[in-house]
Measured scan of single mutants.
Amino acid sequence: MKVMIRKTATGHSAYVAKKDLEELIVEMENPALWGGKVTLANGWQLELPAMAADTPLPITVEARKL
């Protein structure tokens, strides 16, 4: 699914347009965010693609819901 990742004042957030859902990312498998699992505030887990740590945000990526 397409997910937009952006930086907020409190960390990172994910927006899933198909579900009209925006949630804070509360847990990251990798400190650089990319190439691992993230957990959203509502409990969803997404697998993000591997990208460079300095990838500019906001960005829309293809993520997989676990």
Results as ranks from 00 to 15, higher is better:
19 K>E: 15
16 V>L: 14
60 T>S: 09
23 E>A: 14
53 A>I: 11
7 K>Q: 10
26 V>E: 06
42 N>I: 06
8 T>A: 08
51 M>K: 06
22 E>V: 09
33 L>T: 03
8 T>C: 09
46 L>A: 01
17 A>S: 11
7 K>A: 10
53 A>R: 10
14 A>F: 09
36 G>I: 04
10 T>H: 13
13 S>R: 08
9 A>W: 07
41 A>T: 06
28 M>P: 00
55 T>S: 05
63 A>K: 01
4 M>W: 05
58 P>K: 03
18 K>W: 14
63 A>C: 11
52 A>H: 10
62 E>Q: 12
62 E>S: 12
29 E>H: 04
41 A>E: 08
44 W>A: 02
22 E>D: 12
28 M>G: 03
46 L>T: 00
56 P>Q: 11
38 V>G: 00
1 M>P: 02
46 L>I: 11
57 L>E: 02
56 P>M: 11
50 A>G: 08
61 V>C: 04
20 D>L: 09
7 K>M: 10
14 A>R: 02
39 T>N: 04
62 E>R: 12
39 T>W: 12
34 W>E: 01
43 G>I: 03
45 Q>Y: 08
45 Q>R: 12
61 V>F: 06
10 T>Y: 13
48 L>P: 00
56 P>N: 08
49 P>E: 05
57 L>H: 02
64 R>V: 13
24 L>G: 08
20 D>K: 11
22 E>Y: 11
43 G>R: 03
17 A>P: 14
33 L>N: 04
44 W>L: 07
38 V>K: 01
19 K>M: 15
42 N>W: 06
19 K>H: 15
3 V>P: 00
36 G>C: 04
60 T>G: 04
10 T>V: 12
58 P>D: 02
48 L>S: 00
32 A>V: 09
24 L>K: 12
56 P>A: 11
26 V>P: 01
9 A>K: 12
23 E>H: 13
27 E>P: 00
8 T>Q: 07
25 I>V: 07
30 N>Q: 10
8 T>Y: 09
1 M>G: 02
20 D>E: 11
34 W>R: 02
58 P>H: 03
24 L>V: 13
52 A>V: 07
25 I>P: 01
12 H>K: 04
42 N>F: 03
3 V>R: 01
2 K>G: 06
45 Q>F: 08
44 W>F: 06
39 T>V: 11
37 K>R: 13
1 M>W: 14
56 P>G: 07
3 V>M: 03
28 M>A: 13
50 A>C: 11
2 K>P: 09
62 E>V: 14
41 A>M: 09
20 D>R: 12
50 A>Y: 14
63 A>T: 08
28 M>W: 14
19 K>L: 15
37 K>E: 05
42 N>S: 08
47 E>T: 10
57 L>M: 08
21 L>G: 07
12 H>L: 14
1 M>Y: 12
23 E>S: 15
27 E>W: 15
52 A>M: 08
62 E>T: 14
23 E>L: 15
31 P>F: 08
3 V>Q: 00
43 G>C: 06
56 P>L: 10
60 T>L: 11
45 Q>E: 12
56 P>V: 12
26 V>H: 05
31 P>N: 10
56 P>C: 07
59 I>L: 09
30 N>T: 09
44 W>M: 09
32 A>N: 14
12 H>G: 01
42 N>K: 01
22 E>H: 11
62 E>Y: 15
50 A>H: 13
35 G>P: 04
55 T>C: 05
47 E>V: 14
27 E>D: 12
60 T>V: 12
42 N>L: 04
46 L>P: 01
40 L>A: 01
3 V>A: 01
41 A>K: 08
15 Y>F: 11
34 W>A: 02
8 T>S: 09
37 K>I: 14
3 V>L: 07
27 E>Q: 12
31 P>S: 09
29 E>I: 03
65 K>W: 15
5 I>K: 00
61 V>G: 03
22 E>R: 07
64 R>K: 13
51 M>Q: 05
5 I>M: 01
32 A>L: 13
3 V>K: 01
52 A>C: 07
24 L>H: 11
60 T>F: 11
31 P>H: 09
23 E>V: 15
52 A>K: 10
23 E>W: 15
2 K>E: 13
55 T>D: 02
61 V>T: 05
59 I>T: 07
29 E>V: 06
2 K>N: 10
47 E>H: 10
64 R>M: 11
61 V>A: 02
7 K>Y: 09
35 G>V: 03
45 Q>D: 06
12 H>S: 03
2 K>C: 14
8 T>M: 08
66 L>C: 10
62 E>K: 10
35 G>M: 03
19 K>N: 15
28 M>Q: 13
21 L>C: 14
22 E>M: 09
15 Y>T: 11
62 E>C: 15
14 A>Q: 02
62 E>G: 07
52 A>D: 13
28 M>N: 07
45 Q>S: 09
41 A>N: 07
10 T>W: 13
53 A>H: 12
58 P>F: 07
65 K>C: 15
50 A>Q: 12
8 T>E: 06
7 K>R: 12
12 H>M: 11
12 H>P: 07
50 A>R: 11
3 V>I: 11
18 K>Y: 15
28 M>D: 01
57 L>Y: 08
9 A>D: 12
57 L>F: 13
24 L>P: 13
21 L>V: 13
12 H>I: 13
25 I>H: 01
5 I>G: 00
63 A>D: 00
17 A>I: 15
66 L>D: 05
61 V>Q: 02
17 A>Q: 13
65 K>H: 13
18 K>M: 14
41 A>C: 06
21 L>P: 01
63 A>I: 08
22 E>Q: 08
48 L>Q: 00
57 L>A: 02
